[in-house]
Design a protein around this nucleic acid. Structure first.
Lengths: 193, 193
DNA sequence: TCGTATTTTACGAACGTTCGTCAGTTATGT
DNA sequence: ACATAACTGACGAACGTTCGTAAAATACGA
């Protein structure tokens, strides 16, 4: 399917150069067609962008939800750390998460409304499922008693900081160090000891 | 000084639209001149951008270093939390930190090398002074014994996550919640209890 | 199976706009 | 007068987009 090839190339250029910096001619060249041919598959640049955006959202959402639905253990230490590893893995094996991150925080101005909706929608869903997990662990007394929101937001903060380090991305060693440091302190902060 | 007005306007547009999305004509219009007049003060778009970048770097660096040089107390709880509040304050009262953050993580491709140098240079300096503070606190036994790098990186992670929330920026309540949650868990993670 | 009709896909050419930049000229103030 | 600053005018290049057309793939009836 050629439209998928186009979306792949578009993802790459949108991620590297942003919406304004990515040109249709570059994207077309990557696929081996002329830029006019893009209009056979998409209404225009905005349409292409929004389809790439929705694909990225779906990939990220399903990956994360799937992870939490799979686990049922009473072992938050393993599960939470595993989630951080999952995020790193997602980030490194496809570009969609990096694209998503860039557009979440620095959306093209004329599409910021539409993007913001998608971002909030995804964020809420992740937060809800995460918060209920933390509530379970609190009830089971495997982590410290607290408002479930506290470890939830703190953990989302750790995820964010790891993702930033991934975006920054030129230093594998530093990533590992930051991950270990953030995780160590976070886990000490929510576990009994 | 007109060149400062131009840099101010440029900062604004670079921050909102990125390098590629910001046009010299928009910037000039904001100042009340024609775009060609910008060349009286700057060699071109790149020159203008790099000057704005260096100004932003200096502001951020001096603000942060000044904060840590001012404090001498043995009260990390107050000082570290105060630093987070400082970051929030810096972010909200001028655009330079937001600009800096955007360009750190999503630099225009043809200037990424120059930008990366500046970023690494700043990051190192902040890390060094922060790490020595943590070492002092560890030696004074006011926080848990650990490699100084661990609380340093963890704290930098908290700073990053707060900054991301600031970029996201449309929800004051959520910012407060995330700050409290991250801080609570972080402090529990490095303090005796 | 073959030939034809229909749809899908890609293309060249061109559109109007905007981009960053350069050159030459006019106005302002010391 | 001289320097500084902002102007007008123009440049080539790139942008996203539209149009009409040719080729390629598909569907279909004989």
């Amino acid at each position: 399917m050629k439209s998928n090839e186009i979306k792949e190339a578009a993802l790459k250029y949108f991620t590297i150069h942003g919406y304004e910096g990515a040109s249709l001619s570059q994207i077309a060249e990557e696929v081996g067609i002329k830029k006019q041919s893009i209009y056979t598959h998409f209404k225009g640049k905005d349409d292409l962008f929004l389809q790439v955006l929705r694909d990225a959202k779906e990939t990220e959402l399903s990956s994360k939800l799937q992870y939490f639905n799979k686990i049922d253990s009473k072992n938050p230490e393993k599960d939470l750390y595993g989630f951080l590893k999952l995020v790193i893995d997602l980030f490194q094996k496809n570009e969609q998460l990096k694209f998503w991150l860039r557009m979440s925080f620095f959306p093209p101005a004329h599409l910021s409304k539409a993007i913001e909706e998608e971002v909030i929608n995804l964020e809420e869903k992740v937060q809800v499922v995460l918060e209920s997990k933390f509530q379970d662990w609190i009830d089971a007394e495997v982590i410290v008693r607290d408002a479930a929101k506290t470890p939830t937001f703190a953990f989302l903060g750790v995820v964010d900081s790891i993702m930033l380090e991934l975006v920054y991305g030129n230093d594998e060693k530093r990533l590992k160090d930051k991950l270990e440091a953030s995780w160590t302190v976070f886990w000490r902060g929510i576990s009994h000891r």
